[in-house]
Design a protein around this nucleic acid. Structure first.
Lengths: 107, 107
DNA sequence: GCTAGATACAACCGTATGGTTGTATAATTG
DNA sequence: CAATTATACAACCATACGGTTGTATCTAGC
């Protein structure tokens, strides 16, 4: 998933897919590369679960998959939580620390 | 940044860096690859701003950089927001839609 | 059913990436 | 300061990746 988002073109496709109903050919129009290249990018995003394709008429409309974006975000949330809990543990350690004898505190 | 997180080893290093005070050699112990390889991974994470190195004695301790993680998350938040505002716009459209004449609604 | 439109897929190419080994630099220890 | 520990860096290799072109499939319209 992170891999899928690691490419700028793909991130932009996701962005456009969020509020567009664009077919692949239309999407390809926005980028300085061939239709096939864009097609590959969409395929990668699709496999990563960040985007879905739906046949509409003779086109296949690309739609962003909110679930996918949320999935990635959740991972990052876990990292943040790990961090905060670490900070928490450090604070706990300091708090649990019974005030040592005066001579050790002062100075 | 997404690129930096696109590798499983690097994600694990970030995880360990969150609550560890591990040097690179210690980190390398966890993975089936050479010290130099891990060193490169750390360098990539560092360039991406996800991790910092601090010299402590003869080691260089690797610490996760919360700022970096939050940065990536913020990007995903923007995607989510785009999505929700799109849903919002669609809802608005439906709401703004003045009830058409009866003949158009029924049937 | 034939033609045109839109997508799919395979083969190929150059470069970036993840890995290796080897050598050099920094900091601790005796 | 010599020896050891921990990190840095360069050169190299195989493979993955982003791009191309060419051909095949599927749908719409006449």
């Amino acid at each position: 998933m992170f891999g899928a988002l690691a490419d700028a073109t793909r991130r932009d496709i996701v962005r456009r897919a969020i509020d567009g109903e664009q077919g692949i050919l239309e999407l390809a129009g926005h980028y300085p590369m061939s239709f096939a290249a864009v097609q590959k990018h969409v395929a990668i995003l699709e496999r990563a679960g960040l985007v879905t394709k739906e046949r509409i008429g003779r086109r296949k409309v690309v739609r962003a998959n909110l679930e996918g974006v949320l999935m990635v975000r959740r991972l990052l949330d876990r990292y943040e939580e790990l961090w905060r809990s670490r900070i928490g543990r450090m604070a706990d350690l300091l708090a649990d620390d019974a005030p040592p004898a005066q001579k050790e505190i002062d100075r």
